[in-house]
Design a protein around this nucleic acid. Structure first.
Lengths: 205, 205
DNA sequence: CACGAAACATACGCTGTGTATGTGAATGCA
DNA sequence: TGCATTCACATACACAGCGTATGTTTCGTG
């Protein structure tokens, strides 16, 4: 089928969105390396010209997809966290939301499996600074200040916690649908145990 | 300078080794994506033909480099662990060796930064099964059986621990030489604290 | 109703991988 | 000792896929 010729100015935003949808699907199903811009374009009956009109290049397209997925996740986590009573409970609630999100293939694959390949380690690190990591770091900072976490430099603690969550994300990304619920709960259990263990037990005065 | 023509059968192994050396240096200094097989070949005054004679392709070359680096690390960790009295102390000692190894740029860059890009997530996971992860998993299994670690499924606990170590590796990979000692000790402290916290405290009977 | 300008499509070049083929030196063998 | 074979590469070629430069259609605007 030949490309459609009568795309109008008003459809611009729709085209961009359709490209993001198509790219997301391709990246999730076949991975970053195996998807061509040609593929993405023809999926919406357009050409690579359309892609390069809306995005600076292949990795920029991935970044846009990544941004969409991460922003949505970030939103959900913060939303739920705000409903909790204490910072500690906010964190626990946020983890549950996060783990649920990791059960959706699009999140797990894009963020934890493909992103390192597509963006390279440094770029990814810079991006995460704006999304998930910033939330974790802020939480750790607050909890340390409240005395609920032991006195350690915030940076390594945050990095470690961030990657602990990431471990669950990566694991769930490759778990078959049938087992995903069980594995999710296993990780939830281990993480809760871990956090409880490191939580500072204050003496009742 | 033109390629050398008089390479003899006896030099074959030397050529292979030289290619690995050159590749390692290139991958560490410029990253996987930015290094060409042409670069690697000319570094030892050969052509890409030599590379394709010894290795199946670019990613296979990286795998060989990866194997070299990981095997050496594995060896050191196990060696030191064997000297410890108890399994728990063996683990702690192994962690110290591992963190020292992470301070060497070649290890941190190859294993923690470039490997995901070069091999993709799945391939890397399969490889790690044979190296670092297997050691961690075996340790966790043993410690759980001894009752030193709480009763959790071995798989998620091992994955999480593995990635906690990985966090330190990644962090050290991008830490400037001047700060590396300090950061190393920060991570060592946090990890020790973490492990001590989750260790099962048994009642003295 | 010319006249941009947005929103693409088409055409091209270039880099780097992989592969197929060529070549000289050593080695086995009659 | 001559010749064939094989190893260890070098050379040459094909091709995929990214990026870029340029063309074309449609619509808003004066």
């Amino acid at each position: 089928m030949p490309p459609v010729r009568n795309r109008r100015a008003q459809h611009s935003e729709a085209t961009r969105s359709a490209l993001l949808d198509a790219a997301l699907r391709r990246f999730v199903e076949h991975g970053y390396a195996a998807t061509t811009l040609e593929d993405v374009a023809t999926d919406i009956r357009a050409t690579r010209g359309a892609v390069y009109h809306h995005f600076a290049g292949k990795s920029a397209l991935f970044e846009a997809v990544f941004d969409r997925v991460e922003t949505e996740t970030f939103r959900r986590v913060v939303e739920r966290g705000a409903q909790a009573g204490t910072p500690w409970d906010a964190m626990l609630a946020g983890i549950e939301v996060f783990l649920d999100r990791c059960c959706e293939p699009e999140y797990a694959r894009i963020v934890w499996q493909e992103a390192p390949v597509a963006l390279g380690w440094h770029r990814l690190r810079n991006l995460e600074e704006r999304y998930a990591y910033s939330v974790v770091a802020e939480t750790v900072r607050a909890l340390t200040e409240l005395g609920e976490l032991p006195e350690h430099p915030v940076e390594p603690v945050s990095r470690i916690m961030f990657n602990v969550f990431g471990t669950a994300g990566m694991a769930l990304a490759e778990t078959p649908d049938a087992d995903r619920g069980r594995v999710r709960d296993e990780y939830a259990g281990v993480i809760r145990h871990l956090l409880t263990s490191v939580r500072v037990r204050r003496e009742r005065s």
